[in-house]
């Protein structure tokens, strides 16, 4: 995986279920981003919960939309549509989040406030036997940071941009005058 290096430990703690490494599982699952789509795997209730979940992972801020507004939940659904072994992981995770909301706040997750969403998801993240939380988080980041609308806002607000068809960047040619000091040093390599 590119340069998304992160120090995390993963353990299987749920009896009777084998942890599936979603990083390997999704290797062949490429889903277009930024296109309108519905849900293929999730029923309406679970779809609504997942949309609230991804919007808690990346909430709206100023011009930047929440992840749920740019199709991150539909994107995750499309990924697990292509990777059937991950469907159970996602379905179980959604149900566990809903159960946590019921146990702690006696409400549906979608009816909770943003701070309550955070509290519930932190509790789930801390006890996530199927490795579902990092899967949903990573896929949410993918859906968000490859979305044309988000990339355009980033260009406007941070200056960073990448356009497929653009003609490249301009930089000043290397200035050899910068090397004046280094050119004067004696050889540094060892003679053998």
């Amino acid at each position: 995986m590119a340069y998304d290096w992160r120090k995390e430990e993963y353990e299987v703690t749920r009896p009777g279920r084998t942890r599936i490494d979603y990083r390997l599982e999704i290797g062949r699952a490429l889903v277009p981003i930024g296109v309108e789509r519905g849900f293929a795997v999730l029923d309406p209730d679970r779809a609504e919960l997942l949309r609230a979940w991804v919007s808690a992972i990346i909430p709206a801020n100023g011009d930047r939309p929440a992840a749920g507004e740019v199709g991150a939940a539909e994107y995750i659904d499309a990924i697990v549509f292509l990777t059937p072994r991950l469907r159970g992981v996602l379905l179980d995770a959604i149900d566990m989040v809903e159960r946590l909301a019921a146990e702690r706040l006696a409400r549906h997750f979608v009816g909770c406030s943003p701070p309550e969403h955070t509290t519930i998801l932190e509790a789930f993240e801390a006890n996530d036997p199927l490795d579902a939380f990092p899967m949903v988080r990573d896929l949410t980041y993918e859906a968000y940071y490859a979305h044309p609308r988000v990339l355009e806002i980033l260009r406007r607000e941070t200056g960073w941009h990448y356009e497929v068809a653009f003609s490249g960047s301009e930089l000043e040619p290397f200035d050899e005058a910068l090397l004046t000091r280094v050119r004067s040093v004696p050889p540094r390599y060892r003679n053998v």
Partner: peptide, 20 residues
């Protein structure tokens, strides 16, 4: 492609176990 970062984690992954 505009979604090049995602593609880099899929079929362009340097890990043969991921891109397959």
């Amino acid at each position: 492609h505009l979604d090049w970062e995602v593609r880099a984690r899929r079929y362009w992954s340097p890990s043969p176990n991921i891109r397959q």
